[in-house]
Amino acid sequence: MLHIYCPHCGEYREEEEFHCAGQAHIARPLEPEACSDQEWGEYLFFRKNPRGLHHELWVHAAGCRKFFNMTRDTQSYEIKEVYKIGEQPSVVAE
């Protein structure tokens, strides 16, 4: 079970208070109408799904209810860092 540091609350809490909302840094296209079906499909469904470092979006659902990003190793489950929305990771997945 993951032990997660909420960057908003400033403390470690149990995974049960959080949930993962998928891959981080997927920006909604600014002009959806300009997207082809192909591009819109990719925005909606296609994901990196790496074995190794991954940037994810999490929410402290049963806590402060704020979203934040997490860089986590999907093989060892080590959390490398958490950072707020709008910030960039210092440990970067390839």
Binding site: A21, L57, R65, F67, I85
Partner: peptide, 13 residues
Amino acid sequence: YEWLEIYHQTEWP
């Protein structure tokens, strides 16, 4: 509720 929050916090802060 979470739907509103995720769009507000991540797309349109």
